[in-house]
Design a protein around this nucleic acid. Structure first.
Length: 588
RNA sequence: CGGGGCGUGGCGCAGUCUGGCUAGCGCGUCUGGUUUGGGACCAGAAGGUCGCAGGUUCGAAUCCUGUCGCCCCGACCA
């Protein structure tokens, strides 16, 4: 491809508003163009990379035995009502009303495709002999995000690979799940992404086992806890806190319980500021409603309660924070002054393990504008149960090996989970088993955010000059930098090399713009093509081209004769292995 | 939805507080010339309803009201 024949609008300055590296560089390198908040055009360069990611995903899905199909973005709302997801998605679900011959037709734009594929399968699969089967597609998804942000990392329309497995048994589901898990590892490895599979909650989508594939990155929206010692990794919602000493220290004297007025202080920040103490001196008392029953949950002031853990501790299926009315009824005080003392007589009290060893703590007094100081567990209150009820934080003990967990921000690029029968039961997808019993089909589902592969790569692989693509995702594999366009010998050599490389199956971009060499070098670095060949009169006099990898500092010279074969060989090798790219990463 | 910021040629910005010449600057684009290995120089040119609407005023990019859009933080979230 000739540079002057395609569209690569590079920019020296980054557009106002772009802040994180992937967003800035994708705009500056002319990969994408913003249409509105959360919607982007993929320009030729960006689209080429996206298509390459798609190809890798297809190859690995096919190799793992999955079969591709394609489902529409539009579907009837009634299908989504059957699974309760019109309500579950809320405003995130994009709904349209169409006029058809005077009738109103309610349509949703698919945020994911469980309903549609399960509806299909309910008609087409009815015997255990037709399973296991895994079906996938790569297509657009629509989600009216509350706040699209970070360039293409969070958008209202995005490209997703979604796969769904249908199994006759839980064991079979496990095998399908493992196959997808392994395929994901191969995909992200081929994309040269530094990924980390982490244990995850399955979230509102339901199910009982799930892993997220994360790319550790400063600007990631998700938090994971990772143990460098044993490899344990889980997202913050899921991560367990390992065992630690929870017995109260014996060398600190317990002071007498005292009630003090705290006018206007009803948040942890306000109370700690008012009493000039750290939040970890406070016990946060949260009133939840678990399956209709109000309960009190105690965590240290600087910790966050974890609803999944609370739900499990109570074996509750539904859990939500109590309304101000219920809180007032239960505690006898407005929101902000709840405390555990005397609470046990009224409602169940659950406390996080870290609360047990607190001494002379501060809590609400269950009375307007008042707190208790020098509250001591056991002496002043005893919860019904101590359990792990909070989000893990940086430095917590690992649940496996007790070393310290490290908190890392990350970008979620993939998610695999075992769904079970949530959708198949709702949509009546049953099959006849070998023992002639009618059973619901067991499902798994597996997603990859295609745009996040691209953004995640840019986010983790760039330098001051621009993007650094691995060969496997680069929009072009080789850029030919023609130093002097008017020089006939140079142009002839460039065209010949371009032709030879193209014939050898190498993706080449020839920079034939009539501008100074410096501009071309800067742009080549910005768009990040892995291999650059400089064609100039200086080198040609010696019968040489100059060759440089994007991530190395120095160029090497190669003979014009036989250059195409050599370059093609290197490109092919690097395309497969990514070895050179990775060695640069470890160098920092 | 709460808090903050912004909207002026394709891109980045100044001008707005304190209303007043023909709305500027840098980059980019076009023409001509000199250049030519890490974002050249000279000369000239094109390109703007100052987000939109209404109002105040002799006069509005600037003041007032409304509205649309964009970005950041938070809340929320496969």
């Amino acid at each position: 491809m000739l540079w002057t024949r395609t569209l690569i609008p590079t920019m020296k300055e980054s557009p106002e508003g772009a802040e994180i590296p992937s967003h800035v560089l994708m705009l500056r390198a002319g990969l994408v163009n913003q249409v509105m908040a959360g919607a982007y055009t993929y320009l030729p360069l960006g689209l080429r990379s996206l298509k390459k990611a798609e190809r890798i995903v297809r190859e690995e899905m096919d190799a793992a035995g999955a079969v591709e199909l394609s489902m529409p973005s539009m579907s009837s709302r009634s299908l989504w009502e059957q699974t309760g997801r019109v309500a579950a998605f809320g405003d995130v679900l994009i709904q349209l009303t169409l006029n058809r011959a005077g009738r109103k037709v309610n349509v949703v734009l698919g945020p994911t495709h469980e309903e549609i594929i399960t509806d299909l399968v309910s008609r087409q699969i009815n015997s255990y002999r037709q399973m296991p089967i895994t079906l996938y597609q790569i297509g657009p998804k629509f989600r009216n995000e509350e706040r699209p942000r970070f360039g293409v990392l969070r958008t209202s329309e995005f490209l997703m690979k979604d796969a769904y497995s249908f199994n006759a048994s839980v064991e079979s589901l496990g095998e399908s799940y493992d196959a997808m898990y392994k395929a994901y590892c191969k995909i992200f490895t081929r994309c040269c992404l530094p990924f980390l599979p982490v244990e995850a909650e399955s979230g509102p989508i339901g199910g009982d086992a799930s892993h997220e594939f994360m790319i550790p990155a400063e600007n990631g929206e998700d938090s994971v806890l990772h143990c460098a010692a044993c490899g344990y990794a889980a997202n913050q919602e899921k991560a367990d806190v390992g065992s630690r000493d929870c017995t109260p220290p014996t060398d600190v004297a317990q002071k007498p319980l005292t009630k003090i007025p705290t006018p206007g202080a009803h948040t942890i920040e306000q109370v700690s500021a008012f009493l000039k103490c750290k939040p970890q001196k406070l016990i946060k008392t949260l009133i939840y409603v678990a399956d209709g029953q109000p309960i009190a949950v105690l965590v240290r002031g600087d910790h966050d309660a974890n609803e999944g853990k609370i739900r499990r501790a109570r074996k509750a299926s539904k859990l939500e924070l109590a309304s101000p009315e219920i809180i007032e009824k239960v505690t006898g005080a407005p929101v902000g002054f709840a405390g555990p003392v005397g609470m046990k007589e009224k409602i169940p009290v659950l406390a996080d393990r870290d609360v047990e060893r607190m001494v002379n703590a501060i809590t609400g007094a269950n009375e307007n504008e008042a707190h208790l100081v020098n509250v001591n567990p056991s002496r002043d209150f005893t919860p019904d149960v101590y359990a792990d009820l909070r989000n893990a934080v940086d430095g917590d003990p690992c649940p496996r090996c007790s070393e310290r967990l490290a908190l890392r921000h990350s970008i979620e690029v993939g998610h695999v989970f075992k769904l079970g029968t949530k959708y198949t039961e709702a949509l009546n997808a049953k099959f006849l088993d070998a023992d002639e019993q009618l059973r619901p089909i067991i499902m798994g589902c597996y997603g990859i955010g295609m745009n996040r592969i691209i953004a995640g790569l840019v986010e983790t692989s760039h330098d001051a000059d621009g993007i650094i693509w691995p060969m496997s995702l680069a929009p072009y594999e080789v850029v030919l930098t023609l130093v002097k366009v008017p020089d006939e010998a140079s142009m002839k050599a460039a065209m010949e090399l371009h032709e030879q490389l193209t014939a050898a199956g190498v993706e080449v971009l020839l920079d034939d713009r009539e501008c100074r060499a410096g501009v071309k070098f800067k742009d080549a670095d910005l768009i990040g093509i892995p291999l650059r060949v400089v064609i100039g009169d200086r080198g040609l006099k010696e019968g040489k081209f100059e060759l440089k990898w994007r991530w190395t500092k120095d160029a090497e010279k190669i003979d014009v004769a036989g250059a195409a074969e050599k370059i093609a060989d290197w490109v092919r090798a690097e395309r497969q292995s990514g070895e050179r790219f990775r060695s640069r990463q470890t160098e920092g």
